[in-house]
Amino acid sequence: MQIRVSHSTEYNYSIPIHYALQRLRLTPRSGRGQTVVNWQTDIEGARVEVTYDDHFGNLTQLLSAEGDPHMIRIVAHGEVVTEDVNGVSGPHVGFAPLWLYLRDTHLTRAGKPIRDLARSIPGKDPLERLHGLMATISDKVAYEIGATDAKTTAEEALENGSGVCQDHSHIFLSAARFLDFPARYVSGYLLMDDRTEQVATHAWAEAFVEGLGWVGFDAANGISPDERYIRIATGLDFVDVSPVSGIRHGNSTETLAVAITVEQ
């Protein structure tokens, strides 16, 4: 399947910004299940300082803006050919040790509710347990936009009983790590059946299963990723893969507009 993506992020400032940096993780790479046919990032109002691979192997760009831009617009767009690999993205590559993916982060720290949830999952077979975990989370946490935000922790989301894909993923990571599975957060795009316009990137989780490698679990949708999914970046939680993150100096207020289209 060939998927076409356009992902626009636009910052508008009330007064010219003094100085700002934005770190982008917006470039998918070819790998098992996906081949990037073409991809580029167009930038207005800022310039690319450096491009490099971060410690998780994600292609990362640092932008700077200074002087008097009122606006920074970043448009990542391109085409990716995907195939269904049953959610298995394959063996671990890179220097990041697998045990690193067992580390707790602020957003994924497991408290009692998550530990109880993890313990309640029956089964011996790793894959079976992970699927069970996904189904349970999918069941307990309703998909609801606006109930949580980017800073909501896994515990808070579980307690809430609602959230978005980021929250489902954090809960999954937290519980999977508690069960001793190395697990990572994946940011990406999802081709949806009923619409092409979207307001945010998608997110799911991957757990490492001996013999199989990394296996994806999209608890928000209750399925493993198939040919409708494009992976962009991986990390321990949302913070590590955030598509655009930065700092700015000056007193201006900022408005952010994100527009994403994903279509065949």
Partner: peptide
């Protein structure tokens, strides 16, 4: 930008330049 966000002693983005 990479470690403590409130630090005024460092340089935002130096780790990016370093990795590059």
């Amino acid at each position: 930008l990479t470690f403590r966000p409130e630090s005024a002693l460092g340089v935002a983005g130096i780790m990016d330049v370093y990795r590059a």
